[in-house]
Nucleic acid binder design. Structure first.
Length: 508
RNA sequence: GGUCCGUUCGUCUAGGGGUUAGGACGCAAGAUUCUCAUUCUUGUAACACGAGUUCGAUUCUCGUACGGACUACCA
């Protein structure tokens, strides 16, 4: 075994990947890249009942969108193929037999009913039934049944599982990179099923076998696996294999309320929990995605990286490469982190500001196209330049830019009451005459002229600008007005002034 | 219930035996501006509790409380 750093992200194709899963993938990726190692993608599809069509493709696409390039695994192949557990069945079968042969595992014939009965009985007694060291002697398995009867059952094809034989009373002291020492006593642990009656391995067996076969050096996974760490450690020992290092990541919690973030929270609280939009093939239920909501992948990743990890400095904006450079598992937090939709937006805002106007314009063009609006790229670029600072998403730019594409049909009532006075129409008419004579119709030229004009008339600029703005865009907010009219052009600007004079007179 | 893990501003977090306990999001105020936003400045607000160790504990130890995960022939 060499010293190469190799990590894997091993999701189950049971649906879309949610925030927690993406972050696990991210931390694995960052750790691998930090050490110049390999990032593998393995699909753990050993549960036939929970398989969701399209989920695997979704996972691959989501990682791609996030920029987490897979070095080896599903979708890209590699020396340890196949990387889909359903295609590696013989391997698990072989290893399960080995455990049976070495006495680390045994056959169990108990039916689901038997087990349920025992559990119910224990519960009625206020206890918890564990199929472990203290109870396995009372169950129907190859430890309790005479060998010939076991053989008879096996030959008859009786439904059976393979269980791990947990040591009776052993204190296990395990190391976790994030948490330090973690202790367990095997007396309290149960004889987990390693191989199911349907001929498939369970997570535990498949996971350990594959991690070993794929030469994984570090297992970085969610905290929900911490309690299975002793089982996995014992499995490595039973096989006589060197154990990889383990790191259990803290969970991502709901923004408000108790518990870990679930996919329900997103639709309920108005933020996506999935990187990409996802439609449940069974229920038809639709889930929002960060991509479709207008998040930039780098912003999304940056936000996720800082959920449970920090560099120890005050830097908070990181490219993926910077993240990889600075990442270390030692700086991952122990406690769960509440997810904050607000902060996610803030990150996107930051990244949006850095995005070239031409790129923003291209995105904006796409959005506008859906509304049947088309404009030339230079104009859209100018619009983006003006509007982006107040936007979190390109869609915000679209929403705020409507007056560039059509003249106002209504006028902001509050502003109208405040600034549209009886003398205003005449003022605006004068202003229109002034603007008519300005060529070229640039922001600088119109601003200079209007300021001069205001000074000459001894009228405060505010007196003019507010109704001017209202007349042109129908709103009381927005970017520099002279920039707006430059984009609109002289003709359109004058038309709008004229329209406003007529309509606002009537409305007043 | 049992096992394991955790607990610093509302949230994400830095720090670590002696600090004005730092930063960011959010919120509030001020400055700038034709407006809104941006930006800048300022403010707001935290070491869960109780013991112990110590000259001194938010920091170390132990308890308690609270939170979380696991407790399937799911991963």
């Amino acid at each position: 075994m060499n010293d190469r750093i190799r990590v894997r992200f091993a999701p189950s194709p049971t649906g879309a990947l949610h925030l927690g899963g993406v972050r696990t993938a991210l931390f694995n990726y960052l750790f691998a890249k930090h050490h110049g190692g390999d990032f593998l993608l393995r699909v753990e599809d050993t549960d036939q009942n929970r398989f969701v069509p399209g989920a695997e493709e979704y996972i691959v696409e989501a990682l791609k969108w996030c920029g987490l390039t897979v070095d080896e695994g599903v979708g890209v192949g590699g020396p340890h193929a196949p990387y889909r557990q359903s295609e590696r069945k013989e391997l698990y079968d072989h290893h399960a037999r080995e455990l049976l042969a070495t006495g680390h595992a045994y056959l169990a014939f108990d039916s689901a009913d038997d087990l349920n009965q025992r559990r119910a009985a224990a519960e009625a007694d206020g206890k918890t039934f564990t199929y472990g060291a203290d109870n396995r002697a009372t169950m129907k398995n190859s430890l309790t049944l005479p060998p010939d009867e076991v053989k008879k059952l096996v030959d008859a094809g009786a439904p059976r599982v393979i269980r791990f034989k947990m040591p009776e009373n052993e204190e296990l002291i395990l190391q976790d990179i994030i948490r330090g020492e973690v202790r367990f006593n095997t007396a309290l642990l149960d004889d987990k099923v390693l191989f199911k009656a349907d001929g498939m391995p369970t997570y535990h067996l498949a996971n350990v076998v594959d991690d070993h076969l794929m030469a994984i050096s570090h297992v970085i996974r969610g905290e929900e696996w911490l309690t299975s760490l002793p089982l996995h450690a014992l499995l490595y020992r039973a096989f006589g294999w060197e154990m990889p290092s383990f790191a259990h990541l803290p969970l991502i919690l709901k923004p408000v309320g108790n518990g870990k973030l679930s996919k329900r929270d997103g639709n309920k609280m108005g933020f996506p929990v999935f990187p990409l939009e996802f439609t449940d093939p069974d229920t038809g239920e639709k889930w929002r995605g960060y991509r479709e909501d207008g998040y930039l992948p780098d912003a999304f990743i940056n936000m996720l990286a800082l959920l449970g990890w920090n560099p120890g400095t005050e830097q908070e904006i990181f490219s993926l490469a910077e993240l990889a450079e600075q990442f270390s598992l030692e700086r991952v937090n122990k406690s769960g982190a509440r997810f904050s939709p607000d902060k996610a937006k803030w990150f996107n805002h930051k990244y949006l500001q850095e995005r070239p106007d031409a790129d923003l314009a291209a995105d904006l063009a796409l959005l506008l196209q859906r509304d049947g609006i088309q404009r030339d790229a230079p104009t859209l670029e100018k619009i983006c330049r003006l509007l982006k600072e107040r936007a979190n998403f390109v869609a915000d730019i679209r929403d705020a830019s409507q007056y560039f594409f059509r003249a106002p049909e209504t006028y902001d009532d509050k502003s109208r009451k405040k600034c549209w006075r009886p003398e205003t129409p005449a003022l605006i008419a004068d202003l229109a005459r002034l603007l008519e004579g300005i060529t070229p119709f640039t922001a600088a030229a119109t601003e200079t002229a209007v300021r001069q004009w205001a000074t000459d008339r001894e009228t405060g600029l505010g007196k003019i600008m507010n109704p001017f703005r209202l007349a042109v865009i129908g709103l009381a907010d927005g970017p520099h007005l002279f920039e707006i009219i430059e984009i609109l052009g002289k003709t359109e600007t004058l038309t709008r002034l004229d329209t406003a004079i007529n309509r606002l007179q009537v409305e007043n």
